[in-house]
Amino acid sequence: MEISTAVFYLIALITVGSAAVVTFSRNIIYSAFSLLGTFAGVAGLYIFLGADFVAGVQLLIYVGGILVLILFAVMLTHRITDVEITNRAAGRIPALVIVGVFLALLIQTVRETPWVKVKEVAYQPTTAKIGDLFLENYLLPFELASLVLLAAMIGAVVLSRKEIKE
């Protein structure tokens, strides 16, 4: 086995393992912290795929931003560990069956489709090209994304402030 394949399997194992802990752990603190493993593993796969800038942004936004935000929410909603997080048996088996069928379908589709053969990638910096695309082909979506982020920011402030009764 090539060394790169071995490293891929290792990263994939870490990613899937921590994703499973996120979903199936009974302790919400464990879930929140193992989200870190998934985000970091996905960032490692981005580096594998030659997307250096995206990997850096993944670490900055997801690990540095979203994960910290989730931890804040976990800590702020006090008594959250007492809140019942039991999985009701009624919904569980059908959900697992349906998702299992769905996953089998997806994997079957992926395996049967004749994908274009992977070219040998020349690893080169991607940042400049991404910047060019943002300011040429994707200018309008880029501006819209900033608008969405502004709206989200205002919405979060409005939603989470203390209500003041006059």
Binding site: V22, T23, V83, R92, L96
Partner: peptide, 9 residues
């Protein structure tokens, strides 16, 4: 999303 009963999860 389907089986957990906690909004944060």
């Amino acid at each position: 999303v389907l089986i957990r009963r906690n909004l944060i999860i």
